[in-house]
Simulated assay, not measured.
Amino acid sequence: MTGTSLIRIGTRGSRLALAQAHEVRDRLMAAHGLPAEAFEIVVLSTAGDRIQDRPLSEVGGKGLFTQEIEESLLEGRIDLAVHSSKDMATQVPDGLALTAYLPREDVRDVFIGRRVETIADLPLGARVGSASLRRQALLRRLRPDLDLVIFRGNVQTRLAKLAAGEVEGTLLALAGLKRLGNEAAATEFLDAASFPPAPGQGAICIEARAGDARTDALAAAIDDADTHAVLKAERAFLAVLDGSCRTPIAAHGTLNGDRFRFHGMILTPDGTRMHETHIEGERGEAKELAEDAALRLVAEAGAAFFEDWKR
C-alpha cells in the first residue's frame, strides 16, 4: 500500500498505550513498506484516564477508556484507533468495527509484592491494591483475610504507590509489563488455569470506521488470525453475560491447530461464589462454543446470581 495521505493513529497517552500504538505503527510500516513519516500518533485524553479517584463501575464502565477515541474515529479526525482489547465494551458504536488484532501476549496476571514475593506470604490482613473486580474476587477466594482497596492509575502510578507503601502488593497484567520492558517487577506469576484472565487480556486491537476500504486493507496485513478467532469468541462469551465493570468475569480461549479450548468463569464480587466451565471443539465453532459456555454458566448459576451483581 503506497498512498501518500497521512495515516492518523489514535491512542490514549499512557506509556503503555503509546507503546501499543507504536507497535501497530511499526507493524504497518513493515507490512506496507511505508516510512514513519506516513503516520501520525494522535494522543487523546479519555475520561477513564482523567478520573482516578473512583472505581470504573461507579462512573461509567469500560467505555470511559474509549469514548473520546471512538468519537474522533467517527468524525474522521483519526483513521485507526489502538486499544487494549480488555478495555473494549461488548458492543462498539454503530459505524465502527474491530478490524484486526496483533498476536496475543502472555495472558497471565502477576503479583507484585513490596516486602514478600507471593500472595501466600502476605501477612494476615495485608492491604492489596487492584482496580479490577475480577482480580479482587479471585484474590478473595485465595485470601479472604486480605484488605483489598481500589488502585487506579497507569502501570507506573501503581508501582509508585506500591513503592511508597500505600499497599503491600498489587496485581497487574504481565502483557503490559512486558510491553514496557518491566517484566522484572513481577514477583509471582499466576497460573491462568486457576487465576484466569479477563476476556481479551494481552491482546491489542485495532478499531476503524466500518467498511473503510483503505483502513481495512491497512489492518488486514497485520491481523493475527488465531488471536482474532479467539478474541471474537471471548467477546461473544462476555456479550451473552452482559459483561461490564460490575461483573467479575474471566475467559481464556486457546487454539491448538484446529482445536479450540475455552475456560469461562463468573464470580460474585466477594469471591464467595464461583461457577466455571471448560469446553472444547473445532476452530470454526469457537464463537458458538463460547456463547454456549456462557449459557451453561447462566443456567448453572441462576438469575439471582446475576441480579446480586447489580445491587
Rank of each mutant, 00 (worst) to 15 (best):
290 A>G: 13
122 L>D: 07
177 L>G: 11
184 A>L: 09
192 A>R: 07
162 L>A: 11
234 E>Y: 00
107 V>F: 00
295 L>I: 06
109 D>W: 12
303 A>K: 11
184 A>E: 14
96 L>C: 05
114 R>V: 05
51 I>Y: 08
291 E>Y: 00
1 M>A: 12
178 K>E: 15
12 R>M: 14
223 D>N: 15
246 R>E: 14
165 G>E: 08
223 D>L: 05
56 L>V: 02
292 D>K: 12
305 F>D: 03
257 G>M: 08
192 A>S: 14
180 L>Y: 01
261 R>G: 15
170 T>R: 01
225 A>V: 13
80 L>R: 04
220 A>W: 10
94 D>L: 07
289 L>R: 07
43 V>G: 07
202 G>C: 07
27 R>T: 00
86 K>V: 08
157 T>Y: 00
88 M>H: 03
248 P>Q: 05
105 E>L: 05
268 T>P: 01
4 T>F: 09
247 T>S: 15
178 K>D: 09
197 P>F: 02
92 V>Q: 04
179 R>M: 15
232 K>E: 13
104 R>P: 12
279 I>Y: 02
18 L>Y: 02
268 T>L: 13
165 G>S: 08
143 R>V: 06
67 Q>K: 13
229 A>G: 00
81 A>S: 12
252 H>G: 06
9 I>N: 08
276 E>R: 14
163 A>Y: 01
149 V>H: 08
202 G>P: 10
121 D>K: 10
290 A>C: 12
225 A>C: 02
238 L>N: 09
250 A>R: 06
200 G>M: 06
149 V>A: 10
198 A>C: 04
101 Y>F: 14
70 E>R: 05
36 A>W: 00
287 K>F: 00
168 E>H: 06
111 F>C: 11
227 T>Q: 03
203 A>F: 01
179 R>N: 10
291 E>V: 06
187 T>F: 09
22 H>M: 11
108 R>H: 14
164 A>R: 10
126 A>R: 02
287 K>H: 04
69 I>K: 05
2 T>K: 14
72 S>L: 08
13 G>M: 02
239 A>F: 00
252 H>M: 10
209 R>K: 14
76 G>L: 03
24 V>S: 06
293 A>H: 06
150 I>R: 01
121 D>P: 02
134 R>T: 15
150 I>D: 12
72 S>I: 01
294 A>C: 12
34 L>F: 05
239 A>I: 00
183 E>P: 05
111 F>S: 11
165 G>T: 12
219 A>L: 13
137 A>C: 06
124 L>T: 07
67 Q>S: 15
34 L>N: 04
151 F>M: 08
